[in-house]
Simulated assay, not measured.
Amino acid sequence: MNRLSADLAVFSAAAKTAHEAATHEENIPDNKYDTLSLEASYIAQGQANRAQDLRRALQAYQSLELQEFDDDSPIRLTALVRLEAEDGEEKILFIGPQEGGLKLTVHGEEVMVITPASPLGSELIGKSTGDQVTIGRKEFEVVEVS
């Protein structure tokens, strides 16, 4: 949640700065080809939209209740899933409600957040330890669900 809070602060400040640039008197167009103000307003809107997305994600994670898992539990929301390929490559995934693609370092290991709506997330939901999943062209085995 610290990462989401920090990202929210950055995007909120960026949206405010872009809005100020869009409305600043020096950016009033001199002619129909002067689009600096218009471009700044698009940036401001994009930054504000991203800040709103981050607010929703932060609220979702603050109200999230972690589930208990054992070796026989099917993968579902809040599962921490360790995958391993035959060549030894490992991936650690957290099934979260939002912000898929976010990478975090937890106890020195990289954990990627995925959502149940993502292709990989939908493939993992319902699987359990010992099941196989395909990522790209590589097969991975679910070796741990916690």
Rank of each mutant, 00 (worst) to 15 (best):
T78K: 07
Q67S: 14
A85F: 09
I95W: 02
Y61C: 04
D87P: 11
E86R: 12
E99A: 12
G121C: 08
G100A: 13
I75Y: 04
L120N: 01
G96M: 02
A48T: 11
N49P: 00
I43S: 04
G101M: 09
L104M: 12
A117H: 10
Q52G: 07
R50G: 00
Y42I: 14
G126D: 02
L64F: 07
Q98E: 15
T78E: 03
T105Y: 07
A51D: 08
E109T: 03
S73E: 04
T35M: 12
L93P: 00
I75V: 14
I92K: 09
K103N: 08
H107L: 12
L93W: 01
I114K: 01
G96V: 00
A60W: 06
A51E: 07
A117M: 13
S41A: 15
I125G: 00
T35E: 14
Q59Y: 07
L102Y: 03
R56I: 05
G100I: 01
V113G: 00
P116A: 08
G121P: 07
S63I: 03
I95K: 01
Q45N: 12
S118H: 10
P116E: 13
D71F: 13
G96I: 02
V133Q: 08
L77E: 07
G101E: 11
S63N: 15
N49C: 09
V113P: 00
E123G: 00
L36Y: 12
L104C: 07
V133C: 07
L104V: 08
L124A: 07
D87C: 06
S73I: 02
E89K: 14
I95G: 04
V81L: 08
D87S: 12
K138N: 10
A85G: 10
E65C: 08
M112I: 12
E139K: 12
R76I: 00
Y61P: 00
I43F: 04
K91S: 05
E110H: 04
E110A: 13
H107T: 10
E65K: 15
G96L: 00
K127C: 08
A79L: 03
G100R: 03
S37I: 05
D70I: 09
G101K: 11
V111G: 03
V106W: 02
G136P: 03
L124K: 08
R137A: 14
E68G: 05
G46I: 10
V81C: 10
L120C: 04
L38M: 15
E90G: 05
I75Q: 06
S37Y: 04
L93F: 07
F69N: 04
K127E: 02
V113F: 11
E109P: 01
S122D: 15
R55L: 11
D71G: 13
T105C: 06
F94L: 15
T35D: 14
G46F: 03
A117I: 02
S128C: 06
A51I: 09
P97F: 01
K127H: 09
E65N: 15
G88R: 08
V133H: 05
Q59S: 15
T134W: 05
E99N: 02
E68W: 09
G46L: 09
L64P: 08
Y42G: 10
D131H: 13
E139V: 11
A79Y: 04
Y61Q: 04
Q132M: 15
A51G: 10
E110C: 07
Q52L: 13
N49E: 14
E109L: 10
T115G: 05
E109F: 03
S41N: 13
D71L: 14
V81M: 09
